[in-house]
């Protein structure tokens, strides 16, 4: 497991994290208010083009984007058959509707746009900076701390899981459909949760020993400049353009 942040010198990297987060939120909300597939498709292409224009590594970008298909493909498998409308195709006795397919496509485009814009923020900003920026934008402090610590300990959790899996394999365990596998997986999950609970106590103690009283102080100070504000303004105008397209044409 590696950090998602990619170091670089592009404007996206230099952009003030608060502005970047605000602009990303604005851009991510835009497709949720749109249902016309043409402007949605144009927005999806524009979002991808924007990130590639800033020289973000396209392999990594597409790898992350391909992962969301795990959640999107079921939309195309379920919605055409569960939405009433004109039949588009038949699989045995089941008819897939055109309306269902269009609805699935709309959801797909929305998800891709949101994920692409979110990638722009996540890939160009260290996660701790993003969380601190979120805190400055009045995201509740506890929520911000939970996000930061969750991210940090995902790595430890993953390492625990790998150790357990290796331990299981060295003792001859092979995953197969059956009660033995399900029971073993249940024990593994329980064991991971207990370890996580123990770790939480140890981390809390370690933090208290270093003076933790509910806040995570930081050395980082954010500074706005005209470029940051201009870029944020352009993103807002960009969002408004697509909303205008959606509602007036």
């Amino acid at each position: 497991m590696h950090e998602t942040w990619i170091p670089g010198e592009t404007f996206l990297h230099r952009w003030d994290a608060r502005c970047k987060l605000g602009a990303t939120a604005c851009l991510c909300l835009t497709p949720t208010a749109m249902s016309d597939r043409v402007p949605l498709a144009v927005l999806a292409v524009a979002a991808l083009g924007l990130l590639l224009w800033f020289h973000l590594p396209w392999r990594k970008l597409f790898r992350y984007l391909s992962e969301i298909h795990l959640f999107l493909i079921p939309c195309f498998l379920i919605l055409p058959f569960s939405t009433p409308g004109d039949p588009l195709f038949h699989i045995g006795p089941f008819a897939g509707s055109l309306e269902g397919f269009k609805f699935a496509l709309t959801l797909y485009l929305r998800a891709v746009i949101i994920a692409t814009f979110a990638m722009g923020a996540i890939l160009t900003t260290p996660i701790d900076v993003l969380v601190q920026a979120a805190e400055r934008l009045y995201v509740p402090r506890v929520l911000a701390q939970i996000c930061l610590l969750t991210y940090r300990f995902l790595f430890a959790f993953r390492a625990d899981l790998q150790r357990i899996r290796i331990a299981l394999r060295t003792r001859g365990f092979r995953e197969a459909a059956g009660m033995h596998t399900y029971r073993t997986l249940a024990h593994t999950t329980g064991s991971l949760l207990i370890r996580a609970l123990d770790r939480t106590e140890r981390v809390t103690r370690a933090m208290r020993c270093r003076g933790y009283h509910g806040t995570l102080p930081t050395m980082r100070s954010f500074k706005l400049n005209n470029q940051d504000l201009a870029a944020t303004g352009i993103c807002v105008v960009f969002s408004c353009f697509f909303l205008f397209w959606e509602f007036w044409f």
């Binding site: 991210y151 940090r152 370690a206 270093r210 003076g211 009283h213 102080p217 930081t218 050395m219």
Partner: peptide
Amino acid sequence: FHTTVFDDIAFGPLN
């Protein structure tokens, strides 16, 4: 528990 070495070392003094 911090995400950078610097922030982790600075955590105690800042507290």
